[in-house]
Structures are given as C-alpha cells and as structure tokens.
Design a protein around this nucleic acid. Structure first.
Length: 404
RNA sequence: GCGUAGGUGGCGGAGUGGUCAAUCGCAACUGACUGUAAAUCAGUCGCCCAUUGGGCUACGGAGGUUCGAAUCCUCCCCUGCGCACCA
C-alpha cells in the first residue's frame, strides 16, 4: 500500500485526525508504534470493536507496530464517552479474567502479527491520590476539559457526570504519555467518541515532551436501518466462537441492509477497492453475492478460513432447504424421554425464556420442526430415526436438536 | 436545607378512585409479500396455568384510607429546576 492514510480515507475509516496534511506522509515514510485502547467490560470483543481491530491490522500490514491497550484501570473507573449513564465498575478479578480472554482473542485474530499488550493498571495503580494530583493535576485545565463534547452532554443530562468519570480523560491522556515514554508510541487511534480523550493525550505529549504525537479516529459505524451495530435477534454479536458461533456470525453479515454492503466491505474486509467497486455495481437479488463475500471475509478474519467455510456451507445448505448436515449449525443435546412437549423443548433449549412467549410464537406459526410448522402448543416431540431434528424459530434462527 | 416539577411496562409518554396488565408512538417478535435485504400490510408483545377462562405480581419504596388505589393520605428514597454566596 503506497499510502495507508489515503487507503483508510477511501475506505471511510477516518473520522478525525491530527496534523491534517503531515500525518499522511509520516505514516508512509516512517514506521510508527501506535496504540488503541479497549474496554475490558466483557471477556470477548464484539462486532462494535471490529472496525478498530481491522484498522489496527491494516496499519500493522503497512509496517506499523500495534499496541493493544486493555484498560484495566479505566475499566475500574468507567468511561462516560457516548454513554448516557454511568457504566458499571468491575471487580479486579473480573478485569483480570477479561484481560486474559481479550488478549488471547486479539492474538488469534491478528494471526501471528506482532502485537504488544498492555494494561494501564500497571502504571496507574502505583499512584496514590495525592501523588497523582501532584503529578498530573496541574497539567489539565478544567475549563478546557468541560468543553469536551462527551462531558458537555453529560453535564446537561439529568444523570449528571460524576467526578470519577470526569477523570477518565486524564487517565487516558496519561496512558498515551506513558506509552510514548516507554515504547515511543506516537499514534493513537480509537472511535470518534474518544476524540476528546485522545486529543488530551496528544496535547499532553506536546506540552510535556515538546514532541508531536499523532492520532486519528474512525467513525462510529452505523447501520442504515438505524440499528446498533452488532445486535442480532439473539443479542450481541461476539467475536468469541463460544458466545456467537461462526455460523451466527456469518448470518449477521448476510442479514445486513443492502445499503450497507458496499460500505461494510470497505471497512471490514481486505478486498481491494477495485474489487469492492465491482461488487457495488450488483443490483437486486444479485446483491446477495456481495453479502456472501462480506460474510465470508469477516468470518474468515475473525474465526479463520476453515470455520468460515463451514459457516458458509451451513448457511447455504440451510437456506437452500438442504437440511442440517453441517457441523457448524448450532446444536444442543436434549433428552426427550417418551416425548417432550414443544413448549417445554423451547424452554429447555433456552431459545425462549418464558412459556407464554413460546406459546405465542407457536400460535403465530413461527416454530418449525424440519421445516414444518408446529401445529399447536400441545405438539409432542419424539425421537426419530435421524437422531436429531432441525428446530427453527421464525425465518432465521436455527437449532439442531440432537436426541440423547 | 427551602421552594417547585417529577418518578408508570425495553424507551418515550397517557392515565389521576372501579370498565387498568394499564391508550398511544418507537423498539422487539411472528406471519404475508420477497432476495436469509428494504418497504408495506396483519398479528403478538408482564408472568403462570387453562378450552371459553382463571390466577399471580406490577405503575420509585414502606405503611394507611376504601368494598375497591397507578390514581387519595402519611413517611421515606431518587431526579430535574430555582433559591440558599456575589446579583
């Protein structure tokens, strides 16, 4: 890639950047160490993190060295950015667990590329309150800080903004300074909601080290239908195969709005812009081809080629009515004994959490066994010769029920 | 602390003694149509049992009045706004 910034811009991955003209040439002439921070609030990344992870990969491909910061300390504090309410604070044990899980996952996705993992708890925890105030308090001006949009919004909201959260910007700025000092890290990237926090770090380095540090943000990725990125019928779409199977992950991308396909191909896949241009020309039902590629490429990036192939096969088979041969179809083992009522089965599989809901769904004709509508709430499921039955909810949710 | 406006189902927001499991909008789910898309139309949308139907828990919390409360009273908790210092 001759110029990584040009590439990123063309893909719609740049929201804001520092050093308008200079950054492009710096990123093409020099090899920088850069970092992005992630929130350790769960033990897996989700689709909402994917754009940033992909962007880090692109930068790594272009020869820059990634640092993945998992915000142990900031996780203890809770980030108010883009949140309407204060976030839960995590216990240290949970943080440790999440840190380990996220690290492992990130490594796997980056597939052998060099990544350094850091936890800001390591350098922030040594401070006591007075020390921290003394060291960094004088470097930040409150009247500057409250101009920050995320804070301003919170100041107007009825929930208010706690002092704890207000400190988040300072912590993040100190992180950048620390990584600059320790690893010569000179670029920070993040979501556009982090712009204020990121800039605070850039400023801090400029003032305290008389050195230029850079930053850019990627836009908040939205869906045309206004839905939040990374939500499906079944809830959040995780990058962890145990939380969201590769099949479900694949399905998520198949089901994106037509209008989003081109944009998502640019953001989330490594196809060349020329190839994407061609795909964008598709119209009507043909768009499905582009969706298949989008789904396959993203699944491959996250879960690897083999699992992506399996997911693809399961998807095409199921929706072509070819049944559930593939391993990739989500499955569950259930003992039905002499026969199990369909409502109880739905509860047992945890597809539905209340009997009332299960009944309503059956009555509206939304439950199928091997592609046949379940006739009524009294239906009894019994063992068959295949040893399994394909349970379907609505059009898209499949579960292979294996009798044992 | 004082004054004032509020706290209702995932969200917004009606209701102000019985006909309220609670109008309506959004979101969600299902069906029809389709391309596993969108749009549109129809249905569902507290929980549990049931054949029409019934029971239980709910309108910030705890008590009370009443045959009967989301609706009235008392106390408490929480939030916004104004005042409380300069004007």
């Amino acid at each position: 890639m001759s110029n990584i910034m040009t590439e990123l811009e063309a893909r719609g991955l740049i929201a804001q950047k520092t050093h308008e003209d200079k950054l492009d040439s710096i990123l093409s002439d020099e090899k920088l160490t850069f970092y992005a921070g992630f929130d350790p609030s769960a033990d897996s990344f989700h689709v909402g993190n994917l754009a940033l992870i992909v962007t880090m990969t692109r930068l790594a491909e272009a020869g820059h060295s990634p640092i993945c910061l998992i915000g142990g300390a900031t996780g203890l504090v809770g980030d108010p950015s883009g949140k309407t309410e204060m976030r839960k604070m995590l216990s240290e044990e949970d943080l440790k667990h999440n840190f380990d899980a996220l690290t492992l996952q990130f490594k796997k996705i980056l597939a052998g590329r060099e990544v350094r993992f850091v936890n800001n708890l390591d350098w922030l925890k040594k401070f006591n309150y007075l020390e921290f105030l003394r060291s960094y308090g004088p470097l930040f001006k409150v009247n500057e800080m409250i101009k920050n949009e995320t804070y301003r919004e919170r100041l107007e909201k009825e929930y208010g903004l706690t002092f704890l959260e207000f400190n988040y910007l300072i912590l993040q700025a100190v992180d950048y300074l620390h990584l600059f000092d320790t690893y010569k890290c000179r670029l920070q990237i993040g979501g556009s909601d982090q712009w204020g926090n990121i800039l605070a770090g850039v400023e801090l380095i400029r003032r305290e080290r008389q050195t230029e540090a850079y930053a850019f943000t990627i836009p908040l990725i939205t869906r045309s239908d206004g839905k939040k990125m990374g939500k499906s019928e079944a809830g959040a779409v995780w990058l962890d195969a145990d939380k969201t199977s590769p099949f479900e992950f694949y399905q998520y991308w198949i089901n994106v709005d037509d209008k989003d396909v081109g944009r998502f191909l640019k953001i989330f896949t490594f196809l060349s812009l020329e190839e994407i241009d061609e795909l964008e020309k598709l119209e009507g039902a043909e768009i499905k081809k582009a969706k298949n590629i989008l789904a396959f490429e993203t699944t491959k990036f996250v879960h690897g080629e083999d699992l992506a192939e399996e997911a693809k096969k399961a998807s095409t088979d199921l929706f072509a009515g070819k049944g559930a041969d593939s391993e990739a179809v989500p499955s569950i083992e259930v003992s039905v004994g002499e026969g199990l009522n369909i409502v109880d089965l739905l509860i047992k599989t945890e597809l539905i959490d209340s009997k009332t809901k299960a009944r309503n769904l059956i009555e509206s004709g939304g439950v199928y066994l091997n592609d046949e509508v379940v006739s009524g709430v009294d239906f009894i499921v019994t063992k068959n010769n295949d040893g399994f039955v394909l349970l379907r909810l609505g059009k898209k949710r499949y579960l292979k029920v294996i009798f044992n």
